[in-house]
Design a protein around this nucleic acid. Structure first.
Lengths: 342, 342
DNA sequence: ATGGATAACGTTAACGTTTTCGTTCACATA
DNA sequence: TATGTGAACGAAAACGTTAACGTTATCCAT
C-alpha cells in the first residue's frame, strides 16, 4: 500500500547503472561523465528523489542537526532567541531539534541524553534556575559534541557563551532615572537564583553609589515569580513607605507594567510623579500607557550569535579534527529605549 | 581523539557474545536467558549505552520524530501551541522538529520537503496566509505520512484538523457588547486572506442581524498587518465619524489594546463611553488598563489535541497497515473572558 | 537408539548512503 | 608490440541496529 521511497537504487536501475555512480553523479564527482550526470539529475528531479538523512547520518560524520534545550517557550524573550537560532541554522543547512526543560533540572538531564542519542552535531542551552553543577553535560564533552550556552550560563563550564551584561543594563536603567532627576530610586528585583537578576541588582547599586546616593534596602523588593501581580503589589507597598521613591527600576517589563498600573490606580502621574524603567523590551512595554522605558535585550541576536558560534565549532572540527572548541564569552550590548514612563 | 560511541558491538565483545544477543537482551526477547539479560543490562548501564537513533530509524519503520511547520514563533498564540505539542509529543516518546515558514508559501514548500527527507513520522502544520492550494503536501499523502492541520487549515485537504470556531467567537464577542448595552458596534477586522478573520467578521455580522441591528459597513475597518498601531489609528478614525460607535470588537488583542489606548488618549472613559472586546487572550490583554475583555483561544489545547491526533494516526498505522488516517475536524471551545473594558 | 521438543544463542541480510579501491576499455606513446 | 595514461564506471565495505531464520545442545518420550 504505502509507496516506497525513491532511493539511489531506483534511479540506478532505471538508468542501468549502479548506485555508486548515481551517488557520485549527484554529488558532482569528477570521475563521472557530464552525460551521465545530466541523466541522473534529470531522473532524480523527475522522481523527486530526497536523500534519506538517516542513512546519510549513519554513514557520514554529522547529522546536520543541532539540539536546543530551553527552559520555556511561551515567553517573548525565548521565542525571539529561538527565532534567531532557527534562521541562522536553517540558512546554514542545519535542522534544529528543540527540547524543553520546563525549568526543571531533571528534565534538563533527560534532554541532554536524548539529544546525545539523537546524535546532534551540537547543543545550545539556556540553563534552568535549578541547575547548579554541569556534570550532566560531561557526556557531550566526552564525545566531543560542542556546546554553546546562552542567557543562563554556567561560569565554570568550558564552552562558548553568549549573554548580555545584566549589570550594565541595570546600571544604565538606574543611571537614566538619576539623570532624569530621580532622588530616591526603588528596585523591584528578581529572585537570588538566576544570575541575571543578581546582575541587574548589582548595576542598580553601582549607579546609586557612583551618583553618591544612599543605597536604602527598604527600597528593594524581591519577586519570587517575577510576574505582573508582584510588580503591582510591591509598587503599592513602596507607595506606603514614609518616604516613597520617585523612581522605580523593575527587573522585567511584566513587573514594570504591574508597577505602572499600580501607580495609575493610585492616581499618580507618570512620569511626573514617578518614573519607571523595565527590562527586556517585550511587547507589553510598547503598549502600556504610557509606554514603558526599558532596556532592550537583543533576543534575536543572542540566538543568532549562539547558533553561529556553535556551527562554527562544528564546521571547524569537521575540517580539522584537532580544532579546539571555543570558550569565548560574548556579551551583547543592551541599550535603553526611552519611552513615556520616564 | 574523539571517543567513539558505545555500540552493541562493544557490549557484545566485552561479554563474549554477539550483537544480536545483546540487542535481544536489551529488548527483553524471550529467547534470552535471564542471566545474560542481567549481564547485558548491567554493562549497558555502566557504559551508558545509548542506542543510535539513526540506525534504529534506518532499520525500522519510524523515526519517532514529528515535524512541525509554523508561520512564526514570536507570538503568544503560536508559542502556546508549540508548548502543547511538545509536551504531548515528548511524553509519548516523540521528538519534535520545528520549522518556520515565516508566512511564506515558498518556505512552506521547502519545509515540507525537508521534513519528508528527514523521514518524520508525521507532520503538524499551520498554513501561511499565502497558501492557497495544497499540492505541496501531496508528497506526504503519497508516502502515507499523516498530517494534522491546526489553526490555519485547508478545507479541501483530507486530514485531521484542529481549529476554533472563529465565527462563534466573533459572535460571542459581539453578543457580549450587545448584551452590555451597545447600540452601534464597530469591528476592526483582519485582512481577507486567512480564514480566521473572515470567520470572526461573519460572527460579528451574525450577532448584529440576530439582534435586529443594522450592519453599517462604515463601522468596519480592515487591518493589513494586524498590529497595535492599526488598532490605534482605526479607532481614531471611528471616533471622527458623524455617529461614532459605542462598542468595538477587535480581531486581536493587539489591535484591541491599540484601540483602547486611542480611546484613553481621546479622554474617553472605558467602559462607560465605549466598550471593547479583543480576541486571543494574550498577555497584553491582562495588563492593559482597563484589562481587555477578550475571547480566550486555547493555544495549548490546540497544540495538545493536534499532537494527540497525529500520534494516534501514527501508532494505529503501525499496528494495522490498513488503518486509514482520520479526517475529523475538531473545533475547540473558545470562551469570553470578561474584564474591565466592557 | 531414534525422533522431537525446547532453550539459548548465532548467522545473515537488510535499511540507504558514501567512499576507497579496483576494473575495464580506449587511446597514445616508446 | 609492449607500456603507460586517463576517463568512466563498478564492487565492496562500512555505519549500527534488527528480525527472520539457523544452529546447536540437552533432555525426554517412544
Amino acid at each position: 500500500m504505502t509507496k516506497h521511497r525513491i532511493t539511489l537504487k531506483d534511479i540506478a536501475e532505471k538508468l542501468g547503472i549502479t548506485v555508486t555512480t548515481v551517488s557520485k553523479a549527484l554529488k558532482d564527482y569528477p570521475d563521472i561523465s557530464e552525460d551521465t550526470k545530466k541523466k541522473v539529475h534529470a531522473l532524480a528531479k523527475k522522481l523527486n528523489y530526497q536523500p534519506d538523512s538517516q542513512a546519510v547520518a549513519l554513514r557520514g560524520k554529522g547529522s546536520k542537526t543541532i539540539g536546543l534545550i530551553i527552559p520555556e517557550i511561551v515567553h517573548y524573550f525565548f521565542s525571539s532567541v529561538i527565532n534567531g537560532i532557527m534562521n541562522h541554522a536553517e540558512s546554514n543547512g542545519y535542522r534544529v531539534l528543540i527540547t524543553l526543560s520546563n525549568n526543571r533540572l531533571e528534565m534538563e538531564k533527560k534532554q541532554v541524553n536524548l539529544l546525545f542519542s539523537t546524535k546532534v552535531d551540537g547543543v545550545l542551552v539556556s540553563l534552568t534556575n535549578e541547575t547548579k553543577g554541569t556534570k550532566h553535560f560531561d557526556i557531550l564533552k566526552e564525545y566531543d559534541i560542542p556546546v554553546v550556552m546562552f542567557d543562563k550560563v554556567d561560569n565554570k563550564f568550558h564552552c562558548n557563551k553568549v549573554t548580555i551584561d545584566d549589570c550594565l543594563g541595570g546600571y544604565n536603567a538606574t543611571k537614566h532615572l538619576i539623570d532624569s532627576g530621580c532622588q530616591r530610586i526603588a528596585h523591584i528585583r528578581g529572585p537570588k537564583k538566576p544570575l541575571n537578576s543578581i546582575g541587574r541588582f548589582e548595576g542598580y547599586k553601582k549607579a546609586l553609589i557612583e551618583a553618591n546616593m544612599v543605597f536604602d534596602p527598604s527600597l528593594v523588593k524581591e519577586c519570587t515569580e517575577v510576574v505582573y501581580d508582584e510588580g503591582y503589589q510591591f509598587c503599592k507597598e513602596l507607595l506606603k513607605l514614609p518616604k516613597p521613591p520617585d523612581g522605580i527600576f523593575a527587573v522585567t517589563d511584566q513587573v514594570g507594567v504591574g508597577a505602572l498600573n499600580a501607580l495609575k490606580d493610585a492616581k499618580l502621574n507618570i512620569p511626573e510623579d514617578m518614573k519607571i524603567v523595565g527590562f527586556s523590551d517585550s511587547q507589553i512595554a510598547q503598549v502600556s500607557q504610557p509606554p514603558l522605558t526599558t532596556i532592550h535585550q537583543p533576543g534575536y541576536e543572542i540566538g543568532e550569535t549562539a547558533a553561529k558560534l556553535l556551527i562554527e565549532d562544528i564546521e571547524l572540527r569537521k575540517k580539522d579534527p584537532n580544532h579546539m572548541f571555543g570558550s569565548k564569552q560574548i556579551v551583547l550590548d543592551t541599550h535603553l529605549i526611552k519611552r513615556g514612563s520616564t
